Simulated assay, not measured.
Amino acid sequence: MSAIRIGINPISWSNDDLPALGGETPLSTALSEGKEIGYAGFELNGKFPKDAKGVGDVLRPYDLALVSGWYSSLLAQRSAAEEIDAIANHVQVMAQNGAQVLVYGEVADAIQGKRISLVERPRFHTDKAWQAYADKLDELARFTLSQGVRLAYHHHMGAYVESPSDIDRLMALTSTDVGLLFDSGHCYLGGGEPLQVLRKHIDRVCHVHFKDVRKGVVQLARNNLWSFPDCIVNGAFTVPGDGDINFGELLDELLAHHYQGWLVVEAEQDPAVAPSYAFAQKGYQTLRRLLDERTTQ
């Protein structure tokens, strides 16, 4: 039997960056429905408490594990020491609730929540800038590991590390202390073929977001120079089984390399268009079937 577990991000019910998308839905709805569907755990969103005890108290009645939680970093603008101070509480929330990885998102200068074309995203323009950032990231990752939590770097649309070449460079410049969060949807929208990127960096992957894409909408996004919010509201993303990515081949790659972490269903959509329960259930059932086909003897 595989040690892989299937979790979900509450973004299927409410979006932190775009509160108009499900902002009125209470966290309890997401947790109760996710548990009923079959998910083993949840990642954090803005509706969770910010302290370790509070997070545990919220999850415990539903018998759900804490999968991980997004951390908004400003490391590109400040020192490693400053970032270590800033991240310390988040690390403890993870560690004290059994999460072994944290989702690291670089938001310095990012445009992911703004109505600005994705081509205007920030970039490191020199070798020196890349190296300075990588050095700080290594120091930060060593700190989180010392607390029992591995940093899982989230390549993300609208941020410094978005494209396959960005991922390549970051992985080449950092030590293995820095883990990689592989996100199939961001990989595809960022110009990559998910299987190729996963295969290239499989030894660094410590966390997985399985997000599907509608390739026709992605092409419109590229042709019309959409912002990231435009991509979301126009349906570029969806749950596994509802779009065009082959998750079976991605899962085969993970299993071949003995991945034992979480598969997290995450799809930024408007719940008024893509009803939360139905789509969360579709994502779970798709991954459950694919996983069972490969691991049940």
Rank of each mutant, 00 (worst) to 15 (best):
D138F: 01
R294F: 01
M157T: 08
P275R: 12
V119Q: 14
I84C: 02
L255F: 01
G248S: 13
G22M: 05
N224V: 00
G283Q: 12
T29D: 10
E36G: 04
I245E: 00
H209D: 05
R123E: 02
Y160N: 03
K215I: 14
L27Y: 10
Y259T: 11
L44S: 03
Q219F: 12
I87V: 11
Y188E: 01
E293G: 01
A256F: 01
I37D: 10
T238E: 02
L181H: 05
M157R: 11
R142M: 10
A81I: 01
G69W: 02
S175F: 02
L195N: 11
K53I: 07
L225A: 15
I232D: 02
Q92V: 03
F210K: 12
P122E: 14
N223L: 09
D270M: 11
K200R: 15
V93E: 13
R150V: 08
G243K: 05
R60P: 08
A76Y: 07
G241D: 09
S14W: 04
Y277I: 13
S68T: 15
N89T: 14
P164E: 07
A129N: 06
A159S: 15
L66F: 04
V208W: 00
M1T: 10
A80V: 01
P240E: 00
W130M: 08
N9P: 00
V213I: 15
H257Y: 06
E36T: 13
E268Y: 12
L220K: 15
F48Y: 12
A272R: 13
R214T: 13
D85H: 10
L137I: 09
I11C: 06
A40Q: 14
S276E: 06
S68W: 06
F247K: 02
P164L: 05
Q77M: 08
A110C: 13
D270V: 09
A129W: 05
F48M: 09
G191W: 13
I37M: 09
L75C: 03
V197H: 09
D138K: 00
S73M: 05
R78T: 15
P240T: 04
L64V: 05
A99L: 08
F228Y: 03
A52W: 08
R5M: 08
D109V: 02
I116G: 05
P194S: 12
L21A: 02
I87C: 03
H258I: 00
N15P: 00
L151C: 10
L225G: 06
D168F: 07
H201A: 10
I167N: 08
G243T: 05
Q285K: 13
L220C: 06
Q100M: 06
L137F: 07
W13I: 01
E249Q: 13
S73Q: 06
